[in-house]
């Protein structure tokens, strides 16, 4: 079962993005954090001192837990819309 709600929403056709070198299908415009969640990717980065796994927490751009690198730029994935071909690097290890 997907974490996307499939009823009552007509989404644009999926596009392919690249996450740590692997292709991933996602709908353009949806939040990158949501696309990663739908793909079962929850741990997005490691905490600085303890090295604990962290994932999206506030989904409104405040907590910074979902920061990943997109095309060389560090962004909050919760506010970053999916675009075809975007290259995502997670912040683990």
């Amino acid at each position: 079962m997907s974490t996307r709600i499939e009823t009552e929403i007509a989404r644009p056709d999926t596009v392919t993005i690249e996450v740590d070198g692997r292709p991933l299908s996602a709908h353009p415009g949806e939040s990158l954090a949501v696309a990663l969640l739908a793909a079962g990717i929850r741990a997005l980065r490691a905490s600085p001192r303890a090295g604990g796994a962290r994932g999206a927490f506030c989904f409104m751009g405040a907590c910074q837990e979902c920061v990943v690198t997109v095309d060389g730029r560090r962004v909050t994935s919760c506010l970053e819309p999916v675009r075809a071909g975007m290259r995502v690097r997670l912040g683990l290890g």
Binding site: I5, R11, S31, R42, G52, G55, F57, C58, F59, M60
Partner: peptide
């Protein structure tokens, strides 16, 4: 509380209403 999969209540409303997503199964 820092484990991936723990999210805020307001965060969940954003997922449900705006993004059309749920936080898990």
């Amino acid at each position: 509380w820092t484990t991936p999969g723990v999210i805020g209540l307001a965060a969940a409303t954003i997922l449900l209403k705006s993004q059309g997503a749920v936080p898990g199964e």
